[in-house]
Amino acid sequence: MTTDVILNKVFTVNYLKKLINDQGFGLYQDVVDSLISEQKVDNNLDAFVALYKYMFKNHRNEFFYKNTLIKKILLGIHSVNTTTALREIPISENILDLLLINGVGRVYEIKTELDNLTRLPQQLEAYYQAFSYVNVVTDESHFKDVSKLLEDKPTGIILLTKRGSLHVEKKALEYNGVLNSRVLFNILRKYEFENITNEVFGQLPQVNQSKYYDACFEMLSKLDVKEFQWYVLRELKKRSNINSQNLSAFETIPKEIKSLVYFSKYRPTDFEKLQKFLETDYKEVK
């Protein structure tokens, strides 16, 4: 396993949870010792900061892009009080990278310098079945190809520059031409489409369980698709993991791992464990 592959595994929601629960230190130590062994690393926070700097210079992977979007758009332009970010939403056999909901839903499809563009047209077609604003976030190596591909499309283009800033090269335009009620419905969890059905119709369908799912969709499909999209976005916005109980703890999280914590369902004890882990001397990690 290469050090870059290990780096990808270390900067994940699940692996960080393992670390703060004193598990799986092997990969973490391997990548620290391999990539930043000559730097001064006193504690685990120092190690993550150094690894992130390495990533910035040498390996701008999907996590790096996603973390940059969270820092500069969710936290920089909007706030966690008004906007919800969701990741990895399955849509028509595709996985949407990042969605920000603030009045409207804005898709951010990431194409790093490590990716190819083969599936991009198919992915964008799928996302427009559920959301009206779609952006492709990429780097300079893909910029010309992406620009040509999207020349006559409503899709926005955001460039992650070599300096780590986000530059809007083309603004996303609203497009509702292929919105699909079935695709929107399939994004929802059971309690979410029940919430909408109850609110709109004042009741849930009285059918046996085998027909219940289809019966709910049949009722909701009677709505205008844009109206249905509005209800769907409202339900999705409620999925935020950051609330008044954990906001102050979240605000103290280092920028290098901000998105990992944002997408985790941390309890107060988890925030305490994370803080303890970051403050722990790296040499004490076993």
Results as ranks from 00 to 15, higher is better:
186 N>E: 15
72 K>W: 03
180 N>C: 11
270 D>P: 01
104 V>I: 13
4 D>Q: 15
28 Y>K: 05
217 F>K: 01
93 E>L: 15
156 G>L: 04
180 N>S: 10
175 Y>F: 13
149 L>E: 05
213 Y>M: 05
49 V>H: 15
285 V>F: 01
276 K>H: 11
275 Q>P: 00
14 N>I: 10
80 V>Y: 09
124 L>V: 11
65 Y>C: 04
14 N>W: 09
107 V>R: 00
164 G>D: 02
198 N>S: 12
285 V>A: 04
258 K>Q: 12
166 L>V: 00
73 I>K: 04
20 I>N: 01
270 D>A: 06
148 K>T: 14
280 T>Y: 05
5 V>T: 12
267 R>E: 15
279 E>L: 11
121 P>E: 04
278 L>E: 02
215 A>H: 05
33 D>K: 11
122 Q>S: 14
31 V>G: 04
255 K>H: 10
126 A>Q: 06
105 G>M: 04
142 H>A: 06
49 V>Q: 15
15 Y>V: 03
178 V>D: 07
82 T>E: 14
108 Y>W: 05
197 T>A: 11
158 I>F: 00
216 C>N: 13
169 E>R: 13
209 Q>A: 13
175 Y>Q: 04
37 S>R: 13
54 Y>C: 04
83 T>Y: 10
193 F>R: 07
219 M>H: 10
59 H>I: 09
129 Q>F: 03
201 F>K: 02
75 L>R: 09
105 G>R: 07
155 T>H: 06
220 L>I: 04
28 Y>I: 00
29 Q>I: 13
126 A>S: 14
259 S>V: 00
275 Q>F: 11
132 S>A: 14
249 A>M: 14
47 A>S: 08
139 D>W: 03
189 R>E: 11
281 D>W: 05
167 H>D: 11
284 E>K: 15
56 F>Q: 12
97 D>N: 00
121 P>A: 01
92 S>G: 08
10 V>T: 03
29 Q>R: 15
122 Q>W: 07
145 D>K: 15
73 I>Q: 00
198 N>L: 13
88 E>W: 02
25 F>W: 09
259 S>E: 02
231 Y>E: 12
246 N>W: 05
97 D>S: 02
244 S>K: 12
108 Y>F: 14
201 F>H: 03
68 T>C: 08
52 Y>G: 01
93 E>A: 15
85 A>I: 01
94 N>K: 14
169 E>W: 09
214 D>F: 11
97 D>C: 06
22 D>M: 08
21 N>Q: 10
70 I>R: 00
220 L>N: 09
150 L>Q: 06
175 Y>R: 07
94 N>P: 06
59 H>P: 06
17 K>P: 01
151 E>C: 06
93 E>I: 11
276 K>E: 11
112 T>C: 00
31 V>T: 06
102 N>A: 09
283 K>T: 10
251 E>Q: 13
246 N>E: 04
102 N>I: 03
77 I>M: 10
204 L>H: 02
91 I>M: 08
195 N>L: 08
46 D>K: 07
